[in-house]
Amino acid sequence: MQNSEIIKIENLTKRYHMGENDFTALRNINLTFSKGEFTGLVGPSGSGKTTLLNIIGSLDNPTEGNAIVLGNSVSELTHKQSAVLRNYHIGFIFQTYNLLSVYTVFDNVEFALLLQKHTVAERQKMVMEALDWVGLADKAQSKPAQLSGGECQRVSIARAMVKRPEIVLADEPSANLDAANSHHIIQTMKKLNRELNTTFIFATHDEKVMQYLDRIIHLKDGRIEKDLIMPDSKTESHVSL
């Protein structure tokens, strides 16, 4: 697959102020990601995985160096520009799903579209399509509290995918799920990755997730330890449930 470079990270360092001292969460990272990648950031707790995802997602700024996402230099974006970048181009998936409990499944997925300009009919169609991808069209009117953990995470995949972003950032998406559900959601994502050519970047400890990754970047103490291409990663068709 010939795909263009969509994320470029150059000499990126992130330091946090901790009272007197600074704490360095990421040290001089250089990375590029191409369109359609299915990549994981792997490493022990505190190695900087979430920090890196947040900077790519333009939720946080580098201390030094730069992250260029879809041609935008993250450190130079205004609040508004970074909001637009997230709104149209980046989807987030969280360990704890973070669905809005007072809204229905449909509303949760639709919310991402409310910030864009779509007619009601367009939104209706897009939301139902996204729920179809994750196999939850029949639960559109349920509340998150009525769903299982796996179903919640599938709703949050639909929420991330409904606007068809170029990039999806998933921070420990399987950490709260059992084995079967973990496989299921990863396969769902891998399928979307193949069909829509969406770039997925994971932060994960999970061996089950790693089996599916095309590329694994090992982080340790804020540094890249290894950056490996996985030629024989599983695809959704390799596993039966």
């Binding site: 997602g57 909001a83 997230r86 709104n87 987030f92 973070n98 919310f111 929420r159």
Partner: peptide, 16 residues
């Protein structure tokens, strides 16, 4: 805060 965090991630501006 949870809700606000999600909305930020979904691309809503803080001002909004």
């Amino acid at each position: 805060y949870n809700e606000f965090g999600v909305r930020l991630a979904l691309g809503e501006e803080k001002k909004h």
